[in-house]
Computed example of a mutant assay.
Amino acid sequence: MGKDSKSKPKDSGGKGKGKQPAGASDDAGSKGKGKSGKDGLGTCTYVKARHILCEKQGKINEAYKKLQDGWLDSGDKVPPAEFAKLAAEYSECPSGKKGGDLGWFPRGKMAGPFQEVAFNTVVGATSAPFKSTYALPSSFHT
């Protein structure tokens, strides 16, 4: 996930409750005021992300393995369209029907680890699976 210099989000969709996210997507970015550090993250107010949310750890591991085999193991970024296909196939969140797209959301909208991963994943990167506050495995694509 990342940031840019814009100050208002295009949309503020997304829900942070429920199962864990399983990755982040390339079409994500972040908006807001703040200085960027060497990593380009800086401090942002909004972020845009895709995710895969699964109740079972084994299911998110299977989805993440496909991301690794296809792109991550070779050091490539996961194309947003490919992440969206996996989200549609694996995600148990209503956003799965939209390729896992959560849209733009502000700091404080999502809970705990979900927000931390969303605001700390570099733009275009995919996070490893993690457990959210709601004890379900997830992954983000920024």
Score class of each variant (00 low, 15 high):
Gly2Arg: 01
Lys59Asn: 08
Ser132Ile: 05
Asp69Asn: 05
Ser30Leu: 15
Gln57Arg: 02
Pro80Glu: 01
Ser30Trp: 14
Ala24Lys: 02
Ser30Cys: 13
Ala87Gly: 09
Val47Met: 08
Asp27Leu: 14
Lys48Thr: 14
Lys15Arg: 10
Asp26Lys: 15
Ser139His: 09
Ser127Arg: 03
Phe119Lys: 03
Gly2Phe: 07
Lys35Gly: 11
Lys15Trp: 13
Ala49Leu: 10
Asp39Asn: 10
Val78Leu: 05
Lys19Met: 08
Lys31Leu: 14
Gly75Asp: 00
Gln115Cys: 02
Leu102Ser: 06
Tyr134Lys: 07
Asp69Val: 00
Thr45Leu: 06
Arg107Ile: 03
Lys38Asn: 12
Ala24Phe: 11
Asp27Gln: 10
Ala63Trp: 00
Gly2His: 05
Ser74Phe: 09
Ser132Trp: 07
Ile52Val: 01
Tyr46Phe: 08
Val47Lys: 08
Lys38Trp: 02
Phe105His: 04
Gly70Asn: 03
Lys8Thr: 12
Cys44Phe: 11
Pro113Met: 09
Ser36Met: 12
Cys54Leu: 02
Asp39His: 04
Glu92Tyr: 05
Ala24Leu: 10
Ser91Tyr: 02
Ser139Trp: 09
Lys48Gly: 11
Asp39Cys: 10
Asp39Trp: 04
Met110Thr: 05
Phe130Ala: 00
Ala84Val: 09
Gly37Pro: 08
Lys10Arg: 07
Ser132Pro: 05
Pro9Gly: 02
Gly75Cys: 09
Ser91Cys: 09
Phe105Pro: 03
Gly58Met: 00
Gly16Met: 00
Asp76Gly: 14
Lys48Met: 08
Thr43Lys: 10
Lys3Tyr: 00
Gly108Ile: 05
Lys33Met: 11
Asp11Met: 06
Tyr90Glu: 03
Ala111Arg: 03
Val47Gly: 07
Gly2Ala: 04
Thr142Ile: 15
Lys48Ala: 11
Glu89Lys: 15
Gly13Trp: 11
Lys65Ser: 09
Val122Tyr: 07
Cys54Ala: 04
His141Ala: 15
Gly40Leu: 05
Met1Gly: 06
Gly16Gln: 02
Tyr64Trp: 04
Ala63Lys: 02
Pro137Asn: 05
Asp73Arg: 06
Lys109Ile: 01
Leu41His: 06
Ser138Tyr: 15
Ser12Asp: 13
Gln68Trp: 01
Ser5Arg: 13
Leu67Thr: 02
Gly14Ser: 01
Leu53Phe: 09
Glu82Arg: 14
Lys109Glu: 04
Lys31His: 12
Trp104Gln: 03
Pro137Phe: 01
Ala88Cys: 14
Gln57Cys: 04
Val78Asp: 01
Asp26Cys: 15
Val123Met: 15
Glu116His: 09
Cys93Pro: 11
Thr133Trp: 11
Lys6Ile: 12
Lys19Leu: 09
Lys65Trp: 00
Ser74Trp: 02
Pro80Asp: 06
Arg50Gln: 08
Gly34Asp: 03
Ala88His: 15
Lys85Leu: 15
Val117Tyr: 06
Ala111Cys: 07
Ala63His: 00
His141Trp: 15
Ala28Val: 14
Lys10Asp: 14
Lys48Asn: 13
Asp73Leu: 08
Lys33Ser: 15
Gly23Asn: 01
Gly14Pro: 05
Ser127Gln: 01
Gly29Gln: 13
Ser138Trp: 14
